[in-house]
Amino acid sequence: MPYRDFVSLVHKSTTRDYLARVTERDKAEVADLALEWAYDYWDGSRQTGYGGYKYDGRWRKVADAMVAAYGIKPGMRILDVGAGKGFLLHDLLEAVPGVEVHGIDISGYAIEHSMESVKASIVEGTAAKLPFPDDHFDLVISINTLHNLYVYDLFAALWEIERVSRGAKYLCVEAYRNEREKVNLMYWQLTCRAFHTPQEWEWIFAESGYQGDHEFITFE
């Protein structure tokens, strides 16, 4: 399972005020709002989520890196598990005209407000039960999604990703390597259910039979 540096191209460019997430508003209250996966999470304040998740082209560098790494060509079929507003799918379409993209997300709000270029290709649903046939996709990706699942759904999602893939697979999840990163993650997160070190994640991958690539983002 090769380690990939795709999302770090975006993650490390973001400035975060960890203490503000736990001092400006009641953390449990804002977490409840975030878990509705609606306006507050995507387009509300920074305390409850992204603080306005708008397309700005930042995912294009990730798309280009994936195209180079996986040899993505026109006609290939790609699935994004946790596609959100479809920014990465849009950038993949621009990077490789003729590629076939699909997405799934738990948030009806995100899909409703997704990019017009990919809106019809994103369905509402859960990573633990993908509504696609076996061996259907040349590449399955999942970015910053699976750590939001309880362990039983996490294993189910990994099984599902293996089931629908006939080619490459890549996922990115949050992790911590020391106590400072664990505290920062606890402060910053709103929807996370799986808090693991890289070693624990690798054990989960092995136990579930996941054989794709992976990446960890940490909060230094």
Rank of each mutant, 00 (worst) to 15 (best):
F87N: 05
V67Q: 08
L146K: 04
A63T: 06
L146E: 05
I72M: 10
V173R: 07
H90C: 11
C172N: 11
I122T: 07
T145F: 02
A127L: 01
E162H: 03
V173M: 07
A68F: 07
V173P: 05
E124G: 12
L79C: 02
A156F: 01
V62N: 03
H147I: 06
P74D: 11
A175Q: 09
R58S: 14
P131Y: 08
V173H: 06
A156E: 07
L130R: 03
A83E: 01
V101K: 02
A157C: 03
L146H: 06
A95Q: 10
E174V: 12
L88C: 07
E124P: 09
G82Y: 01
F87A: 05
H136C: 11
V67M: 10
R163E: 00
I141Q: 05
F132V: 05
F87L: 08
E100M: 11
V62K: 03
S114V: 08
L92H: 01
E94M: 14
V123K: 13
H102W: 09
S142Y: 02
M76S: 09
T126L: 11
M66A: 12
K61R: 13
R166C: 05
R60K: 14
S142W: 00
G167R: 00
E174F: 11
G108W: 08
L149F: 04
I104M: 04
R177L: 13
S121R: 13
A128F: 01
E162W: 02
V140Y: 03
E124Q: 15
P97V: 11
V151S: 14
E174T: 13
M115E: 11
A128I: 01
I72G: 08
M115L: 15
D134Y: 01
R163P: 00
F155R: 14
L79S: 00
P133K: 09
Y150T: 14
P131C: 10
T126A: 14
F132T: 00
D138F: 04
G108S: 12
I141L: 12
D135F: 08
Y152N: 14
A156P: 01
S121A: 15
D64L: 15
I122P: 04
L146D: 06
A120N: 12
F87R: 06
V151W: 12
I78K: 03
I161N: 04
E112V: 11
V164E: 00
N144T: 09
E112D: 15
H113P: 09
L93I: 10
S165T: 01
I106D: 04
